[in-house]
Design a protein around this nucleic acid. Structure first.
Lengths: 119, 119
DNA sequence: TTGACCGTGCACGCATCATCCATGGTATAC
DNA sequence: GTATACCATGGATGATGCGTGCACGGTCAA
């Protein structure tokens, strides 16, 4: 398990705090697009500082694209999952499958019913 | 995305540092079993303290079982993936699939060739 | 005029993880 | 018989990642 191993590196990248949850929230948006404040409100406990950092990192890796809508006021920034980002949702689906199978207490998250949510 | 949501909780649990990599190394062992020092040597950069903590957490969640072999000297401690733990490997497979598709530079990790390794 | 919202980024404090070391009991080296 | 290495674990202390609190500049509604 070399440090340079791609699988190793990818695991360490994707398991940084908030990474997968941000991708999941983006996935839930129409056209897999959501705005900064929208994400911030959905991710309970995330700080704008970290959200901003993570979004930049995800953009750098080509997992999402950033588009600033300067026509509207206040300026709105939209983040959209790329094809590469969309496929990461499969990983989250795997985690969900495991959780629902082995963790009996399936507590739904608000409006989203985990048992039948978009995942 | 409520804090109490099972998927949310599971993501946060599994994405703690070293979690998935420890499970992957256990999976590589014969009968999905490996010893403490063996794991420590395979996981480049992990400290024995954190490894010990993580193994205990994984045992508490029923993801692995711990067996002390007191007949041998020095005493050897063996960790084995449970059925629940085995299925987490599917999640890692998902990450590998994604990495090999979107990250061109597939750097093998030592003896394990990522392109054809046990995953 | 005053306040609210938008996305970002700073200075500071805490929680997590890394570093270093200690343990006890036994096998091998000398 | 003395020394040293291995095994798994846990404590004390540092470093780093992330949370907290706050500020920005620009434009809207009240």
């Amino acid at each position: 398990m070399d440090d340079a191993c791609t699988v190793n590196q990818t695991v360490r990248y994707l398991t940084r705090k908030w990474m997968l949850l941000i991708i999941l929230e983006l996935y839930k948006g129409s056209s897999h697009t959501r705005r900064f404040s929208d994400l911030k409100d959905s991710l309970d406990g995330i700080t704008p500082k970290v959200l901003s950092e993570r979004l930049k990192e995800l953009e750098d890796e080509g997992i999402l694209t950033r588009k600033v809508d300067a026509t509207a006021f206040p300026v709105k920034t939209e983040y959209t999952l790329t094809a590469s980002g969309l496929e990461i949702v499969d990983v989250i689906r795997g985690i969900k499958r495991w959780a629902l199978k082995w963790k009996i207490e399936n507590i739904p998250c608000g409006i989203q019913d985990c048992g039948a949510c978009v995942l």
